[in-house]
């Protein structure tokens, strides 16, 4: 894969990469480091990408591997407000909803984050199973548990 094609790929997938770095790291600085590490790891492994899998599958795999394996010094987490303000503009409401969702996802264990992230990206059980290495049945079982954990966090602030 040549450099121009690689840059084009990253441009296409960077919203997803950015979201991964947001749910796996809490501070802005750690998120930036992780995003950079993911892009670097994609670049290092792009030569070994032989085209047997879809390019999107390969990007998900490398990005999530990096998020799970990359060790960085833990910085103090960014605290998001639990409650929405009583009145606000629709933009503020949207920002708060986004912050609440990210905050809830950050509270999940890393493995759970991986599965639910792929689910929210609209991947099928089969695709999630292929990327993670677990069976489709197990994807379903885990997803049900994660969904209820996430609902609890979103409603009560804890699992």
């Amino acid at each position: 894969m040549e450099e121009a094609r690689f840059l084009e790929l990253i441009q296409t997938f960077q919203p997803m990469l950015y979201k991964i770095s947001r749910i796996y790291r809490k501070s802005r600085e750690d998120q930036e480091d992780l995003l950079q590490e993911i892009i670097y790891q994609l670049w290092k492994s792009h030569r070994s990408f032989n085209g047997s899998a879809q390019v999107g599958t390969w990007i998900y795999r490398v990005a999530l591997n990096t998020a799970l394996a990359d060790f960085r010094k833990k910085r103090p987490p960014v605290q998001y407000p639990d409650q929405l303000p009583d009145m606000g503009t629709s933009q503020e409401e949207e920002d708060n909803r986004e912050a609440r969702l990210i905050n809830a996802l950050q509270q999940l264990p890393d493995g759970d984050k991986t599965i639910i992230m792929l689910y929210m990206e609209s991947l099928s059980y089969k695709e999630i199973a292929a990327i993670t290495g677990i069976s489709e049945n197990n994807v379903g079982v885990k997803l049900n548990r994660i969904k209820s954990k996430l609902q609890n966090i979103l409603s009560n602030g804890t699992e």
Binding site: P15, K19, W43
Partner: peptide, 20 residues
């Protein structure tokens, strides 16, 4: 829908090139 609607900043080609 909320996940898909999360706003993300855009990196330029030059920034990505620097990262790799």
């Amino acid at each position: 829908n909320s996940w898909k609607g999360i706003k993300t900043p855009r990196l330029t080609d030059q920034q990505i090139y620097t990262m790799i």
